[in-house]
């Protein structure tokens, strides 16, 4: 690994300024960045460590405003924040799939998003949960919806010098359930071939689907919010024709490629299979929640 300069600012402003410099890269857990630097896939002259900045370490939940998740909070902290597993199980599921226990102690959800991989394990959940990314730059702060955060493989809505500060997730509707799953050929240490998150809101009859969001990852240059799949479920009682239509919509919406992880054909097929399964998870979550 090439020698480089390491900065660990304690103030957000300093971090923003340092990150704007040529050759600078923000560093959260480093589980993407350091690996990529060692392999020569990115050239970094300055690493700007974000872990000492208070704003990026917030982790709080409020019934009205929902969850505030600082961009540098390690995935391992999510399980310890009680309402996350109960209200946002799809987010926790994604975070707990990343690497291993050791990796999760370093890796952050913020880094997972900023790395820009269409196969990232936390993005689909954040999309279906209507999360918002709070961004800070030299000229102030702005917000971008999670569904618009990734713009291409390895590319995000961040401009050079901008930092992701936190992710805000609104509280889910009272009668709802959400779930996330990915498919990998092995049972651990793998990257999603396809992944899907589902978020369902139910009517008072506890059967009719009032709202549905389906997001599919690893099957297009960016994760996709598949609105047609959601629409196929809304108004239904999640019966077979509705599920079939949702699965078909997901398979149709994706734009997969052939690579070492699977063929385009297979990914198309799996987008449908996983959509059904993710919907099933969301239904179970809702039922379990009483």
């Amino acid at each position: 690994m090439k020698p480089l300069e390491y900065h660990a600012p304690g103030a957000l402003d300093d971090a923003v300024r340092l990150s704007a410099e040529a050759g600078a890269s923000p560093l959260a857990g480093g589980t993407d960045l350091i690996v990529q630097h060692r392999m020569g896939r990115v050239e970094v002259a300055h690493m700007v460590d974000l872990k000492k900045i208070p704003e990026l370490n917030v982790l709080e939940f409020d019934k009205k405003s929902g969850l505030r998740l600082g961009a540098a909070v390690p995935c391992a902290a999510l399980a310890e924040c009680e309402p996350i597993g109960r209200l946002y199980p799809s987010l926790l599921e994604g975070a707990e799939l990343i690497g291993s226990t050791q990796i999760q102690s370093r890796a952050s959800v913020g880094g997972n998003l900023c790395n820009g991989s269409p196969a990232a394990d936390t993005i689909c959940a954040l999309i279906v949960l209507d999360a918002v990314c709070v961004i800070q730059g030299a000229n102030g702060s702005r917000e971008v919806a999670a569904k618009d955060f990734m713009t291409g493989p390895g590319e995000t809505a961040l401009n050079k010098g901008e930092l992701l500060v936190e992710i805000r997730v609104p509280p889910p509707a009272p009668l709802s359930g959400n779930g996330y799953l990915r498919f990998i050929p092995r049972n651990e240490m793998d990257i999603a071939v396809v992944c899907v998150a589902a978020h369902l809101v139910f009517d008072k009859d506890r059967e009719t689907c009032l709202d549905a969001k389906i997001a599919v990852g690893a099957a297009a240059p960016t994760p996709l919010l598949v609105e047609q799949a959601g629409r196929a479920l809304i108004g239904s009682k999640l019966d077979e024709p509705a599920l079939k239509a949702a699965a078909q919509a997901a398979s149709k919406a994706v734009r997969p490629i052939d690579d070492a992880r699977g063929t385009a054909e297979y990914r198309r097929h799996m987008a449908g299979v996983l959509t059904r399964r993710a919907v099933g998870m969301a239904v179970n979550r809702f039922k379990e929640s009483g």
């Binding site: 050929p185 092995r186 049972n187 651990e188 240490m189 793998d190 990257i191 070492a260 992880r261």
Partner: peptide
Amino acid sequence: LDYRVPTMLD
């Protein structure tokens, strides 16, 4: 990562 030898869980 992509040359998949079995892990303990497989």
